[in-house]
Amino acid sequence: MLEFINENIQLFYLIILMVFVGIELIGHVPSVLHTPLMSGANAIHGVVIIGSIIVMGQATHMVSLILGFLAVVLGTLNVVGGFVVTDRMLEMFKKKK
């Protein structure tokens, strides 16, 4: 266990720092923006698609290939859908006076 943490100590530092950054970023957001913010965050975790691309690029078996293909499609849906929906919400926040 100790060995495992030591080997990946950089990653653990990164995780802890990111937890605080995340908390800091959301700290003082008006409730008006909660929905777009949730939607934007939703799009950002679509970064999981990188993993599916790596898996797909190394797949040799039929099963891996099919599951990988599905994973990339779903990941893309998350990314594209997430960003587009967020943009549509925010498009309406233009100030009109």
């Binding site: 990653l11 990164l14 950054v21 950002i44």
Partner: peptide
């Protein structure tokens, strides 16, 4: 890792 944890912590706070 950055994207995931960022959303994980920001999402929890939200």
């Amino acid at each position: 890792l950055v994207g995931g944890i960022l959303v994980g912590s920001a999402g929890t706070l939200l």
